[in-house]
């Protein structure tokens, strides 16, 4: 008898539990707040800044990754899913930059507007000419290689123009009523980017051919645009932690080529680069990879101002240039 009673109680509690869950399920999942602005979620802050410049006050932009984070290794936290759940547009950098985390968020957000294949999923790399696209069969013995090419394409400011155009196109499609507004803002922003780039190119002109070493393959596009010669990397292969044997080889190469600049993104450790610089007399230059990565780099253009000023200052300090 007691057993039966106990069982009834536990049955009741279980039924209550299920009922409660159903109530939660139907009461809360249906609610989606209506917002007048286009709600844009981007994977990285550089895309967010460009989108904000084009969208103006017609959009609300949120980035998932922070500027000082490694964009390859962002955690697919449920709190990011909450952001993505309400998104009208999802801007990704593409070229597999976010392959380690974005797919989990896309599925977890339960938002059909922004799923891959839906009109709200915007791959901003469309139209970019990727560098380091493997021309031979690749496998993991080469490290964490990217089959589609190097995904850090926004380290070339010229690619920001392409991205800005892609984003404007997406905005106009989503919100045709304000197409004129987006066009106007796109024109103004592209003009600003062009003028800024002219300044950066001129500032870098004396240092064409400057030899550098970088920590990770973050700066291939930057090097190509501004005439830097990358002699080697602190990582033996992309995504592989540096080994003593590789470092000693790198130091030899730096001495042989007289490399005096080592570039590192702020999310990498500084111990090994410090050691390399001590042994080679090179200067370590921390460059922001994305807006927000270092103080003062609040937007894409300011970030590039810092990149160019740090590079030119370092180059001058080591006596490079004509």
């Amino acid at each position: 008898m007691i057993m039966r009673m106990k069982r009834n109680i536990s049955m009741k509690s279980f039924n209550l539990f299920i009922a409660l869950m159903f109530v939660l399920l139907f009461a809360i999942t249906g609610i989606t707040s209506a917002h007048a602005k286009i709600y844009v979620v981007t994977t990285t802050p550089d895309l967010a800044d460009i989108a904000g410049n084009i969208g103006g006050d017609k959009v609300k932009v949120v980035s998932i990754a922070k500027g000082f984070q490694d964009p390859h290794f962002v955690e697919a936290k449920p709190s990011h899913m909450l952001k993505l759940r309400k998104a009208d547009l999802y801007l990704v950098a593409g070229l597999d930059l976010e392959i380690g985390w974005s797919p989990v968020l896309e599925r977890g957000a339960r938002n059909p507007r922004i799923m891959k294949g839906a009109s709200g999923y915007i791959d901003c790399s469309s139209g970019i000419r990727p560098v380091e696209v493997p021309s031979t069969r690749i496998d993991r013995s080469m490290g964490d290689v990217h089959p589609l090419g190097n995904p850090h394409y926004l380290t070339d400011p010229n690619n920001a123009i392409i991205v800005a155009k892609n984003i404007a196109k997406a905005f106009k499609k989503k919100d045709p009523a304000n197409a004129g507004y987006y066009n106007k803002r796109l024109k103004a922003y592209v003009k600003k980017l062009i003028r800024a780039q002219i300044g950066w190119l001129k500032a870098m002109r004396p240092y064409k051919g400057l030899k550098v070493v970088t920590y990770h393959k973050n700066w291939s596009y930057l090097s190509k645009r501004f005439g830097l010669k990358v002699i080697g990397y602190v990582e033996p292969k992309p995504g592989i932690a540096p080994s003593p044997a590789h470092i000693s080889k790198l130091i030899k190469a730096m001495k042989a080529h007289n490399v005096k600049i080592l570039i590192r993104a702020p999310y990498f450790e500084s111990k090994i680069p410090d050691m390399i610089c001590r042994q080679t007399g090179a200067r370590q230059v921390v460059l922001p990879l994305m807006p927000g990565a270092v103080k003062g780099a609040d937007n894409y253009i300011d970030m590039f101002n810092i990149i160019i000023s740090r590079l030119t200052n370092a180059a001058r300090a080591v006596g490079a240039g004509r």
Binding site: P130, V133, I138, P147, L201, R225
Partner: peptide, 27 residues
Amino acid sequence: DDEALLKQLQKEMGEEEEGEAAPRPTG
């Protein structure tokens, strides 16, 4: 003029003349 100046500067700084965008290999 800005665009022309930019192209000139880019040509000066770039290592090689950029060709047509290559089709992306699917691998």
